[in-house]
Simulated scan of single mutants.
Amino acid sequence: METPTSTPPRRAWLPLILLLPYLALLWLPFYNGAPPSLLGFPFFYWYQFLWVPITSLLMYVVYRSAK
């Protein structure tokens, strides 16, 4: 019996999810500014910090789906 060597088509889009944080943080003019602030932190900082748990969650979803 032959084993498949490529990812099944229904899961081929999963690695593309990992591009979301990259693209969201790559577009600097979108979040390069002070307002709105959150707990005294400018938007520039808290937007980047927000993507840390989001990226971890996305990596977890892709990891669990790839099994």
Rank of each mutant, 00 (worst) to 15 (best):
V52D: 03
P21M: 03
Y45C: 03
P9D: 10
R64I: 07
L16K: 09
T3V: 15
T5G: 14
Y63L: 15
Y60L: 15
T3S: 13
I54F: 04
R10K: 09
V52L: 11
L18Y: 03
L58F: 07
F49Q: 03
Y31I: 04
T7P: 09
T7C: 12
L39G: 01
Y45R: 07
L38S: 01
W51F: 00
I17G: 02
F43H: 05
S6W: 10
K67Q: 15
Y60W: 15
E2D: 14
S6V: 13
V52A: 05
F44W: 11
S56L: 15
K67T: 13
L18A: 05
M59L: 14
M1S: 11
N32W: 12
P21H: 01
L23P: 02
L25G: 02
T7H: 09
K67V: 14
M1P: 04
F41I: 06
L20A: 07
Y45E: 08
P29C: 05
W13G: 04
L23H: 00
T55R: 04
L19A: 12
P36D: 08
W46E: 00
W51E: 02
G40K: 01
S6F: 12
A34L: 13
Y63P: 12
I54N: 00
L26M: 12
I54P: 00
A12K: 14
T55C: 06
P8E: 08
M59Q: 10
M59D: 06
F44G: 06
R64K: 12
Y31T: 04
W13K: 06
P42G: 08
W51H: 01
Y22I: 14
I54C: 00
P35Y: 13
Y45G: 01
P36E: 03
L25A: 03
P53E: 00
M1T: 11
F30R: 07
P42T: 05
R11C: 08
P8A: 07
L14D: 05
L16R: 11
V52W: 04
